[in-house]
Structures are given as C-alpha cells and as structure tokens.
C-alpha cells in the first residue's frame, strides 16, 4: 500500500475538500481528513487527528499536512504520541500544493521520505520562487542566488508523448528533476504558463498527450534544467 496522508485543518470543510481533490488524482492513496473541532467549529482536534493518523497508516507510513500554526502543533503532538513516532512525518509545505505533490508521489509508490520531500519541495501557486530551488538537498551548496537579469536563459519546445500528459504523477516528477538546480523554469501550454515546480500549476495547464509545451529557464543552471526535463520527457515521464 502507498504512504498515507492526513490533512490537518482548522476547517472540516477545507480538510474534506483537499481529500476530495486528492481522491481524483491519487485514487490508491489513503487520505484522511482531520479538520475542525469534534463539537463543531474551527480548530484542530487532537483526538480526531490521532484517529485519522491511525486510519491513514497502512504500513508504509503517513505524511501529515497542515494549514495554520496550531494545526502543526496538533499534528506534531499526534505523531509524538504514536507507539513509533518514526512512522509519520509532519511536512512543512503549503497545504494544497504540498498535498497534491505528496499524493502524486505516494500514488507512484514512493517511500515515506520521498513523499515528504515531494511535499516540501512543492511551491505555492504559479509565481516564481527562486529560493525553493537551492534549499532542497542534492548536494548543491551554491549558497547565493544569482540575479535574474544577468542569468543565462534557455528555451525549448517539446511534444508530450506519454499517455497521461502533464497529469499529477508527471507533474510531480517534473518538479523533482529540478531539485537542486538554480534555475527558474516556466512551462507554457495552450497560452498559459506555470512554474515548473508547482505540481498543481503544471497540472492546471491541462497539457495532454500530443500537445506541444514550451519550456523557458532562467538562471545559472538554465541549460541543465532544460536538459533534465527533456530527458524526463524522452523517458515518457517514467520515474
């Protein structure tokens, strides 16, 4: 069974909404909502979170995502209260983007640590976020961010040949191959653009098999970023 997910939110409706969203793109992943207080109203409920954590555990571990500060504390407390706290991890990630990235990764059969990484690499929205690129591990210690204006640029088009197009799993892999690179990468399809590191943004482009997509990269690693993406596309987005 894939790694499970728990959505810890102050709002029952929000938690259930995220679960509904993930159900579509990661049908085999067990995703449990833990939103609102048991008596109704906004807040995070320790008992409900612990119960959701137990329900989401199928033996492969659980990743918890949260919305606001005190939800993180409730999630951490629930993890610490487990017989083996190493079986669950609270991801420091934006709730929806992180959950989408984690679900795509879990659906693909990744282990607990990789699913957590996928969530934590997730960026919010489709805006540029240069700081995300080098904070992720992968041996780079380039330390400083280069100025965009003087950075190398690279452009390339490619045609999607894989069945799913830029659906959840391919979008998650796209984000993953860019890990550790100092480059901002934009994907364009059908006149819309998205940050290549935003799983949700890339999915939102709705690019399907046979579609032509544009790739644009800026930054010191622009060339290698496009090379990695091209190689991924050449493999038909197989991890």
């Amino acid at each position: 069974m894939p790694v499970g997910l728990v959505i810890v939110s102050h709002s029952d409706a929000l938690a259930r909404g995220v679960v509904e969203l993930l159900g579509q793109l990661a049908p085999d992943v067990r995703v449990e909502p833990a939103g609102g207080m048991s008596a109704g109203g906004l807040g995070t409920d320790f008992e409900a979170t612990s119960a959701a954590l137990a329900d989401a555990e199928t033996g492969a571990g659980v990743v918890l995502l949260y919305d606001l500060g005190s939800a993180r504390m409730t999630a951490e407390l629930a993890v610490e209260s487990l017989p083996d706290p190493d079986t669950a991890v609270v991801a420091e990630a934006p709730l929806v983007e992180g959950a989408v990235a984690a679900a795509a990764s879990a659906q693909g059969g990744d282990g607990l640590k990789t699913v957590v990484d996928a969530a934590e690499r997730a960026v919010g929205g489709t805006v540029d976020s240069p700081e995300q690129a080098t904070t992720a591990a992968e041996g780079t210690d380039s330390g400083t961010q280069s100025s965009v204006t003087t950075s190398p640029r690279a452009k390339q088009d490619l045609v999607l040949r894989n069945e799913a197009g830029l659906h959840a799993r391919p979008a998650a892999l796209l984000a993953r191959v860019l890990t550790g690179l100092d480059a901002e990468v934009t994907v364009t399809a059908g006149g819309n653009s998205a940050d290549a590191r935003s799983v949700l943004g890339v999915m939102g482009l709705g690019a399907r098999k046979g579609d032509r997509i544009g790739l644009q990269a800026t930054g010191p690693d622009a060339e290698s970023a496009l090379r990695r993406v091209t190689e991924l596309a050449d493999r038909d987005f197989e991890g």
Partner: peptide, 9 residues
C-alpha cells in the same frame, strides 16, 4: 482548541 491545547498540553 487552538494553539493553547497543544502548548499547555
């Protein structure tokens, strides 16, 4: 509920 539960707890 809120932050006080986990903190005081």
């Amino acid at each position: 509920g809120g932050a006080s539960g986990p903190l005081f707890g």
